[in-house]
């Protein structure tokens, strides 16, 4: 009897206990995941839509509803790109992605009608080093592209003046180089995809 009891205590009980804890934990997390799944998907959609609006330089109220309303009103989906009617004329918005230092950087680039002047730029996703490369997501950086046209030259942070110069990010040489390549490619891609050149 005693041997049986220790066997139970030593082998069976820990297993049963672990199993119970695992099942319980997974039930809780799964339940929560399933209940919030729709919301997470909606967020993702709203995020992409906002990037499109930002790139096109279109005005919107920064709430989920505001984004949806502005998007549905102004943006048309074309084959591989988007067009939008802004207050200063037609905008072409193109999703572009390319390598960053650590992972893929995905951006939305908005063009004015000449397809070389940027109307805006928004980051969809990036995985660069926090505090260094990840600063490409900061508004001061993305705003620089507005009204400028490619090919861009990246210069030291805080010294950009000419209409094709962009402030690079100090300490993130690599990310800046990748980003320069990406934005310059965006302009050629735009002409190819939209005009078929």
């Amino acid at each position: 009897m005693k041997a049986k009891a220790t066997f139970y205590k030593k082998r069976i009980y820990p297993l049963v206990f672990m199993f119970a804890v695992t099942v319980f934990c997974i039930l809780i997390t799964s339940g929560l995941y399933l209940t919030t799944q729709d919301r997470a998907i909606a967020n993702e959609l709203s995020f992409t839509r906002r990037a499109i609006l930002d790139a096109g330089g279109l005005a919107y109220t920064p709430t989920t509803e505001g984004i949806e309303k502005a998007y549905l009103e102004k943006v048309t989906v074309e084959d591989g790109y988007y067009t939008a009617q802004s207050s200063d004329g037609l905008r072409y918005i193109l999703p572009v992605q390319g390598p960053g230092l650590w992972g893929t950087i995905a951006i939305m680039v908005g063009f004015e009608q000449d397809l070389s002047t940027f109307s805006g730029l928004a980051i969809v996703s990036q995985n660069e080093t926090p505090g260094l490369g990840a600063r490409i997501e900061e508004p001061w950086f993305t705003k620089q592209f507005q009204g400028k046209s490619s090919p861009f030259i990246f210069v030291n942070e805080g010294t950009a003046q000419a209409p094709n110069e962009i402030d690079a990010i100090t300490g993130a040489t690599r990310t800046s180089e990748y980003f320069r390549n990406l934005t310059n490619r965006a302009a050629t891609d735009a002409k190819r995809i939209i005009r078929g050149e």
Binding site: C25, I28, T29, L32, Y33, T36, N43, S46
Partner: peptide, 16 residues
């Protein structure tokens, strides 16, 4: 880990 996953899921859903 369970509590951290809860934090992660809540953040993802409400503060994307």
């Amino acid at each position: 880990a369970t509590f951290v996953i809860i934090v992660d899921i809540v953040l993802k859903a409400f503060y994307p």
